[in-house]
Structure formats: C-alpha cells, structure tokens
Write a protein that binds this DNA or RNA. Structure first.
Length: 296
DNA sequence: CGTTCAACCTGGGCGC
DNA sequence: TGCGCCCAGGTTGAAC
C-alpha cells in the first residue's frame, strides 16, 4: 500500500543504513521480475558491491538511495554517482529488520557501517509488483523528475495546487491520484483527506472553489503529517510494516477508508463505497456533500 | 482533454 | 475442508 506516509516512514527507518558500505548484494533466484527498466540480477549485484549508501531520499512514493564510493583512500574507478531507486507499489517494503518471510525477499544488501558494525538492507515484496532500478543522475531525472512527478504532497503550496488541478474536469479524488500533478497521494489517503476537508470525491476539480481548495490543501498536510507520525497504515492483511518490521498505527484513525456501511464517526451516516477510475472510493455522503456546509 | 480496460502478482476473506 | 470468487495500499500503456 505504500503511499507517501508509508514511504516516508521507510525512508526514515532505513536512514540508519546511510554510511554503510555494501559488501554483498543478493537477488534470490527469479524473485526480481525481468522488467524492462530493471537491471539483470548479475548487473545489480556487480554494480552495488563496494558502493556506499550516501543518502536516502524520497520522491513521491519512491525511495532513492544515493550510492558513492568509499573514501578510504582506495582508488576505485571513480564512477559517477548511482541511484538505487525502489518503487514499492502495492506490497513492497524496505527493511533493516525482519523480513516478514524469507520467500518474498527480492533484494538483500549486506554491508558494514562506518563504525565497523555489520548491517543490512532488504527489499521485500509479496506480490512482486514493485520495481528496482539502478540509474545515474540523468536516469534519476527520468524516473523521479518533474516530468514524472509533481511537487510533493507535503510541500506543495496552495497556489501551485490550484494552478495544477483547478481547471481540470476530472473528479477531485481521481485527480489527487495523478502523480504528475502532485506526488505521493494514493487511494487510501485521497479518501481520508477528502473526508477531512468535507469534499465530495466526485466533484470536478474545476467546481471546487476557493474555500474547498483551502480546506483540501490544509487537510492534505494534516492527514499526511499525522499518518507519518503514526508510521503509516497497516491494513487487515498486515502487509505493511515499518523498516523495523513493526505495524503502522494510523489505521486506527481511518474515518472512511474500508469502512463501507459503518457509521460515520462525525454524523452517523453509513459510509458509502463507489468506484472511480476502477478503484474504490469511500466517503460519507452527509459530511462530504456538494452543498455548502457549516462545519469542518 | 478524458475515461476504461488489461496487465503485472500473491494471498486474505467470503459465500457456498 | 475446499473451491471459486472478489478484493487490495500502484503504475503503465493501449484503445476509445
């Protein structure tokens, strides 16, 4: 499920791997799908070995690890910086502990921290829809640059948000999932932030008006920030775990997601589920009405 | 512009 | 206990 809060939690959780030299990389046989953009396991293993993880960044729902060379004086081929870009998609996890099960480990890095301690980092993915890429600076631009991802949902300003989506005829819920417009929002948090803002998910962006954009912008930040504080949402299938292999805690705060038929915590009306762009949308028909409203 | 569908995968939950 | 469905935090590309 990883959306922005889960991926940000992963980023923070694997920050302990910064400074680690990769001694060995392992791609368990056949567990990394041969996708066009994914390097062959042999190349991955070869090019990762000896590198040092210099930084870990997040671009929308992707994690990018900057890889350099050790500064211990040895003159390796001073290759350009490389980026290990991981897209967890539905069930991918980046872990420094665990994994939940051995059978879905897709990439395992073993290494040594600056202080000499042994360390490790692994990519685990039950469904195997996630992707792993190893790219140079230009490749990073292609994969995570502004052509591909809009401003981060935690960073975007209200004017920019309105400039990017305000004229769109799309339903606001669908538009929020457009990573080129604004990066990081997925199906779960789109529903939650629209509830928090009191906006009907079916409303076309171009009909939202000033007040609703303001409420949405505020709710976007508040929902995502609180979800990060609680380390993301672990749903009933328990797939999502933090980098330390622990569940998130934001699921207890869900107001609408996966709550079809249950009473809205604010007004008691039954939560509805509809389909938009082939995906479930959950909302409260009373609190999220097209009609003007009185309370936030 | 926009939507719709299929594809990529594994596994949990439900009705029968 | 099992089978056959339906469903899922995402993204992409083709077709209309």
């Amino acid at each position: 499920m990883p959306e922005l809060p889960e991926v940000e939690t992963m980023r923070r959780g694997i920050a302990s791997a910064i400074g680690m030299r990769i001694d060995a990389a392992e791609v368990p046989r056949g567990r990394l799908r041969p996708l066009a953009m994914q390097p062959e396991p042999e190349r991955l293993v070869k090019e990762l070995s000896g590198r040092v993880i210099e930084a870990v960044g997040r671009f929308g729902k992707r994690i990018a690890c900057r890889l350099g060379w050790p500064t211990d004086g040895r003159e390796g081929d001073r290759d350009r910086v490389r980026w290990l870009v991981i897209e967890p998609r539905m069930t991918g996890l980046l872990l420094v502990a665990g994994p939940p099960s051995e059978e879905h480990v897709r990439l395992r890095l073993r290494g040594t921290h600056a202080d000499g301690a042994a360390g490790g980092l692994l990519f685990w993915d039950r469904r195997g829809l996630g992707t792993v890429r190893l790219v140079d600076a230009r490749g990073l631009e292609d994969v995570c640059g502004p052509q591909r991802l809009g401003p981060d949902a935690l960073q975007i300003g209200l004017p920019d948000l309105v400039a990017r989506l305000g004229d769109s005829a799309r339903a606001v819920k669908v538009a929020l999932l457009d990573q080129r417009a604004v990066a990081g929002i997925g199906n779960l948090y789109a529903a939650e932030m629209l509830f928090a803002a009191g906006i009907d998910p079916r409303m076309p962006c171009c009909q939202l008006g000033r007040a609703r954009w303001e409420r949405l912008h505020l709710a976007m930040r508040q929902v995502l920030e609180e979800a990060i504080e609680l380390e993301g949402s672990t749903l009933s299938d328990a797939t999502y775990r933090t980098a330390l292999n622990e569940p998130g805690r934001y699921q207890a705060r869900h107001c609408v997601y996966a709550r079809e038929g249950k009473p809205c915590g604010a007004c008691g009306t039954a939560i509805r589920r509809i389909i938009q762009a082939q995906r479930s949308t959950f909302f409260c028909p009373a609190c999220q009405s097209r009609r003007p409203r009185r309370k936030a």
